[in-house]
Design a protein around this nucleic acid. Structure first.
Lengths: 223, 223
DNA sequence: CAGTGGTCTAGACCACGCA
DNA sequence: GCGTGGTCTAGACCACTGG
């Protein structure tokens, strides 16, 4: 056990047990230096890690305090669909249903490529996808057919990302969507909208519509 | 600009621009020490931060490498509903519809308290909640009526957490749920299932059912 | 075995912000 | 002003691991 981990663990235990409640001031760095008989750099690294993880807040001159839990946050995994299906032991298949250049797509005011298709798992369709790819940022996409590989899979391996925003909603499938997914009209679907940026420029925008009865998202707590 | 931030920024830029692709070995610590004219501790802190954020992987003897992007992950905010509604400028209200002890609830094989109610925003119901609270972990809950405050809000301020798992699905409301939420039967809803642990023990389990047309979740990219 | 990252030390100076 | 955290230095020893 390293000294840093020891300090962190002791403080985490006191916070999690409720002994130190939100707002409680934890010992000053120099006090911890004395208590653990280590250097200030070690204490600083331990407290810095706790602050980065949101367990404590640090204020100059005032000290370090147990953070007030504001919002519940969790890490949502948005994996490559092919991997998810494969992990379940089912066959995965992608079917391209449309591909065309869009001079100026609504969501992107840029020359873009529009790709539409269907994701299958275990022989059954489970998600519809409609994607726009900005050709200014990813000109190589124009050479791709996207017949054998879903654009998300391809992009994951070809374009580094810097930011993205996801929006998750429950919606009712319209007639065409329901037919494509094998649902009754107005069947419940999970809609995932994702916009991805790279250095401030939109790279891609995707809307995925999942059958509500065949897909869910799991998010683990952080920290 | 600190030296640490400078080093981080330079490396991040090279990764994001695609100049250094996944698997590329980045300079050794001692090389960066020379290049930036700083101490090894500073370089170490910069690289350690990048590793913690998943941008690079570090291996002894081998060096540090640009990480292979695995899965897309994002930070999902699961806020206190009262705060969300208030932030929109609408009135928030909680209505308790049921409260009873459950000797051994299905989800928890423990003595628990069952709380049911409805969240209102702008005078309209928008979410149903059914919650189990483990009385072994949170005995104080038995003294709470939960008439004036939703149990989630109360718990957030009374119990420190250590882990949680969320499951998000699209479901169709049954007749009773639809009526309570003011939806037509089978209307699309977002279902959020959350189990919260503290030191390995389940603290609470909640199922929230949101009107699909009035609620969505937003997740921001990480890192 | 040799070189890397992991961890630590005992100092130092600085900027911020409360008194 | 003065004490806090923020940052940095110039060393050091160690554990792991790849060749």
């Amino acid at each position: 056990m390293t000294v840093e981990a020891l300090i962190r663990g002791d403080i985490e235990a006191r916070i999690h047990s409720g002994e130190w409640k939100p707002g409680h001031r934890i010992p000053f760095e120099h006090e911890l230096v004395t208590a653990y008989g280590c250097s200030r750099a070690t204490v600083s690294k331990a407290l810095g890690g706790l602050a980065k993880d949101g367990l404590i807040e640090r204020r100059r001159k005032a000290g370090s305090f147990v953070a007030h839990p504001q919002v519940h946050s969790a890490v949502l995994e948005v994996p490559d669909l092919a991997q998810v299906i494969a992990a379940r032991g089912e066959d995965y298949r992608w079917q391209l249903t449309g591909r065309r250049g869009a001079e100026s797509a609504g969501e992107l005011a840029l020359p873009a490529l529009l790709v539409e298709g269907l994701h299958y798992g275990g022989g059954e369709p489970f998600a519809l996808e409609r994607r726009l790819i900005a050709l200014t940022e990813v000109p190589e996409a124009e050479q791709e057919s996207f017949v054998d590989q879903a654009p998300g899979t391809w992009l994951l391996h070809h374009v580094p990302w810097t930011a993205a925003r996801h929006r998750i909603r429950a919606v009712e499938a319209n007639v065409g969507e329901a037919k494509a997914l094998g649902l009754r009209p107005r069947g419940a679907c999970l809609e995932l909208d994702r916009t991805t940026w790279r250095a401030g420029q939109i790279v891609t925008h995707v809307r995925q519509l999942f059958r509500g009865d065949r897909y869910d998202l799991v998010a683990e707590f952080k920290p």
